[in-house]
Simulated assay, not measured.
Amino acid sequence: MPLTTDDDIRTLLESARTIAVVGASDRANRPSYGVMRTLQAHGYRVIPVNPQITGEHVHGEFVFRDLSQLGDSIDIVDIFRNSAAAGEAVDQAIAAGAKAVWMQLGVINHEAAARAEAAGLKVVTDRCPAIELRRLAIAPVA
């Protein structure tokens, strides 16, 4: 069952330090661009992942092709892909040893969520971490 209570979401966001953004964009008019900036401003290390702009930089961070390239521990994988494509990102998150997957607003893939939960990951669907940080008044990461 995906995390839905304020307490569960707060605990996840307060315990996280590193967030990979799958579908990160280098275009200012894209939601992932603004969310990545908000997460960075809140103190998270944010790693952009997007095969179309691999090797470039977004908000000062190197863009990786996929999660298997990271090598660092990932607390949350924030997925900016359509619902059908979210399954691949979830499978990569499981393989990379992420602790949680977060499917953005409008991203709902029940099968992928079930796979993540079966693998021991926490799951959030159809929400935005930037909105939740403000809504729950979560203090910046120290």
Score class of each variant (00 low, 15 high):
Arg65Asn: 04
His57Cys: 01
Glu56Gly: 09
Ile79Ala: 01
Glu88Gln: 11
Pro48Ile: 12
Asp72His: 03
Val124Asn: 06
Asn82Leu: 07
Arg115Gly: 01
Ala89Trp: 04
Cys128Ala: 00
Ile53Thr: 13
Val21Asp: 04
Asn50Tyr: 05
Leu121Pro: 00
Thr18Gly: 01
Phe80Arg: 11
His110Lys: 15
Glu117Asp: 07
Phe80Ile: 15
Ala41Gly: 15
Val124Gly: 02
Glu117Thr: 06
Ala118Tyr: 04
Gly120Ser: 12
Thr5Tyr: 09
Asp6Phe: 04
Gln40Gly: 08
Ile19Ala: 01
Ala113His: 07
Asp91Trp: 06
Glu111Gln: 14
Lys122Val: 02
Ala28Pro: 05
Gly23His: 01
Ala119His: 12
Ile138Ala: 06
Tyr33Cys: 05
Ile131Glu: 07
Val58Gln: 06
Ala89His: 05
Arg115Tyr: 04
Phe80Glu: 07
Gln40Glu: 10
Ala112Glu: 06
His110Asp: 15
Met1Cys: 02
Ala24His: 09
Pro140Ile: 11
Thr54Asp: 05
Ile108Pro: 00
Ser25Trp: 00
Pro48Gly: 08
Pro129Asp: 07
Ile19Asp: 05
Ala89Asn: 02
Glu61Tyr: 08
Val63Glu: 04
Phe62Val: 13
Ala119Tyr: 06
Asn82Ser: 01
Ile9Ala: 10
Gly106Met: 08
Leu67Pro: 08
Glu117Met: 14
Thr54Lys: 10
Thr11Gly: 10
Ala116Thr: 14
Tyr33Ile: 08
Ala119Thr: 03
Val123Trp: 04
Ala113Glu: 12
Pro31Cys: 02
Gln40Cys: 00
Asn50Asp: 09
Met103Pro: 01
Leu70Met: 12
Val141Asn: 08
Met36Leu: 13
Ala139Gln: 14
Ile74Ala: 02
Ser68Asn: 03
Leu39Ala: 03
Leu3Arg: 11
Asn50Ile: 10
Glu132Ser: 12
Asp7His: 13
His110Phe: 10
Asn50Trp: 05
Leu67Glu: 11
Ile47Gln: 02
